[in-house]
Design a binder for these strands. Structure first.
Length: 429
DNA sequence: TCTGGGGTCCTAGGACCC
DNA sequence: TCTGGGGTCCTAGGACCC
């Protein structure tokens, strides 16, 4: 039996935790650079199809309807997420942290007899201790737990908790028949269209579809979904987080970038950020890729996008080397005369940093493989961890004040729980 | 003015091996 | 009539997730 606990409109809910005055109001959260809408509470979603719309197109609607908009505050969401997952872990014998706002839980061996009631216990605890609303779905497989979670959120009568375990099959099927096939975990836009053409429009239709046919027409991935809807587990809890196989650092610029020198700084910064992420999981990479692109939404502007990659002779996690290789990639694809909107750096062919292959014929170990260089990176990471990201960095990343593309976050809330200077203040009359 | 940022898995096909 | 049988590795593209 699996449970899925999922925060309701998580980012919007995080914003409301320290703002009781927002209760009942429409709350939205924008993406980086306040580009598009990435979260909205139920009140705001009632305004219509607004998710992922560009914010500037929603401005008028929001003004007319008293919508409170926040820039994304990932420091706050990340911290509240960690607290939520820690709390959820105390209610189960095993836990998989699936995303920033979702945990799968396993209650095996706890001797529970009323899962519906236990779900309510979890829900109330998270609300009381963190002020965050969650929904709980319980089923024989992850896919069923996901479906139950979705139904618990949408059908008011269930009060945020739905356990398939406590329901007769007929009742389960009745509920699955009310769930559009597009809401089934693992069914995206493309497959929804194709399934609908076959007459499969609800979760129940998909459950009853012949698995062999689904495998032939789609793939083994969707076949597994069919089996999971039938209560046959095809996916276990992932108790240890696997290392990332690729690490991407990518940003859109708030202002167009036209000069190579500016782009070099951006690419250097992204490479440094990716390298830091990679060291945190103790890995090294053998491949560095860089991509740049103009703004595809700007009509009439000349468009160009390209990417290049390079292989390293020795796997490395050294910021200096990775910046150097990234800049070489950039040089090979750079073209003057365009206004660039976005760049990314990708590290791939990632392996364990524990195994370090030295060069038999080199007079000295390559500098990025050198134990001294490794120690230097460790110091760099410790400084930045303690003093804040970017406190200590490569000159290639640029000096504050010269940066041409500061992130736009006009409406960011305080980082209530992670910065001493931004603690919430209570006034006593 | 203005459109996010990260990831994974699977399949098909080509090139190559004996 | 009839042109083998078994495998690996790599890449690109397409689907999905949050």
């Amino acid at each position: 039996m699996f449970a899925l606990v999922d925060g309701n409109a998580f980012y919007a809910a995080c914003e409301a935790v320290f703002r009781p005055d927002l209760k009942g109001r429409r709350v939205c959260v924008g993406s980086n650079n306040d580009g598009c809408l990435v979260a909205a509470n139920a009140e705001a979603k009632a305004l219509g199809n607004i998710m992922y719309q560009p914010l500037f197109q929603l401005e008028k609607l929001f003004q007319q309807n008293d919508v409170v908009v926040f820039s994304s505050n990932y420091e706050l969401y990340g911290d509240l997420s960690q607290r939520m997952h820690t709390l959820l872990g105390t209610f189960a014998t095993a836990q998989e942290v699936y995303s920033i706002d979702e945990s799968f839980l396993d209650f095996t061996g706890m001797g529970l007899f009323d899962l519906q009631a236990y779900g309510q216990v979890i829900r109330r605890a998270v609300m009381k201790q963190l002020g965050l609303p969650v929904a709980v779905g319980i089923g024989a497989t992850k896919t069923l737990a996901k479906a139950a979670n979705r139904l618990a959120k949408t059908i008011p009568g269930w009060n945020g908790v739905l356990s398939f375990a406590d329901l007769p099959t007929g009742e389960q099927d009745r509920l699955l028949a009310s769930l559009p096939v597009s809401d089934v975990w693992g069914v995206g836009r493309r497959w929804t269209e194709q399934l609908q053409a076959l007459g499969v429009t609800t979760a129940l239709d998909l459950k009853q579809a012949p698995a062999q046919l689904i495998r032939r027409r789609f793939s083994v991935v969707l076949e597994r979904t069919v089996r999971e809807l039938n209560g046959i587990p095809c996916q276990d809890l992932e108790l240890v987080t696997p290392d990332k196989q690729q690490i991407v650092s990518s940003r859109s610029f708030s202002q167009p970038v036209a000069y190579l020198e500016d782009m070099r700084q951006a690419v250097s910064r992204y490479a440094a950020r990716a390298a830091e992420k990679m060291r945190r999981q103790g890995s090294t990479c053998r491949q560095v890729s860089v991509g740049i692109a103009t703004n595809p939404f700007k009509p009439g502007a000349p468009q160009y996008h390209n990417w290049a990659s390079t292989r390293l002779i020795h796997p490395s996690d050294h910021t200096g080397l990775l910046i150097n290789r990234a800049k070489h990639c950039l040089q090979s694809i750079w073209r003057e005369g365009f206004e660039y909107k976005k760049a990314y750096v990708m590290l791939s062919d990632i392996g364990s940093g524990q195994v370090r292959q030295f060069d038999l014929f080199a007079r000295e170990a390559h500098y990025s493989n050198n134990p001294k260089a490794t120690a230097l990176m460790a110091v760099l990471d410790r400084i930045n961890q303690r003093m804040g990201r970017g406190s200590c960095r490569m000159a290639a990343e640029g000096i504050d004040g010269q940066m041409q593309w500061p992130m736009i976050r006009r409406m960011q809330s305080p980082r209530y729980t992670t910065q001493w200077g931004e603690l919430p203040v209570a006034y006593i009359k």
